[in-house]
Simulated assay, not measured.
Amino acid sequence: MHELSVAMGIVKIAEDETKKAKAQKVTLIELEIGTLAGVEFESLDFVWPSAVKNTVLENAERKIDVKQGLAQCADCDTVFEVQHFYDSCTHCGSNLKGILQGKELRVKALEVI
């Protein structure tokens, strides 16, 4: 399950940063995840309790900032929302585009004590 490895990676980042800060645990973790990042939010919710058990994140509040996919058309410069990488420009129908937002998968902030 891909989301389990994502969750375990988040735990590793939190543990490393907690050690650097000489803290004991995390009270809040803020994540930024794009809709094009390939993460199924329901699956992440399902594996989260198992991934954080007996870690610095076990009792931490989790906030997720979901970033909608945005692209800019290479032909007409229109900026438009995308649900999938293969979506066409909503203005001219071109398939040539640059992804501006939506691929994010990062730990945005940690509150530690």
Rank of each mutant, 00 (worst) to 15 (best):
M1S: 15
H2G: 07
E3M: 01
V6S: 11
M8Y: 13
K12A: 15
I13F: 12
E15H: 08
E15L: 07
E15K: 11
T18M: 06
K19L: 14
A21Y: 08
Q24I: 08
E32S: 14
E32F: 02
I33L: 05
I33Y: 01
T35K: 14
A37D: 10
A37F: 03
V39N: 04
E40Q: 14
F41P: 01
E42L: 10
D45W: 01
W48F: 07
S50V: 04
S50L: 11
T55C: 06
V56S: 02
V56Q: 07
E58T: 12
E58P: 09
A60H: 04
A60I: 05
E61H: 12
R62F: 04
I64V: 15
V66T: 12
V66Y: 03
Q68M: 12
L70I: 11
A71Y: 13
C73E: 10
C73K: 08
A74K: 15
D75P: 04
D75S: 08
D75C: 01
C76A: 05
C76E: 03
C76W: 06
D77I: 00
T78C: 07
T78D: 11
V79N: 11
Q83P: 00
F85M: 13
D87T: 03
C89Y: 12
T90S: 15
H91N: 14
G93I: 03
G93R: 02
G93H: 05
S94W: 07
L96A: 11
G98D: 14
L100R: 01
Q101S: 12
L105F: 02
R106I: 12
R106Y: 01
K108Y: 06
K108V: 04
V112P: 04
V112L: 15
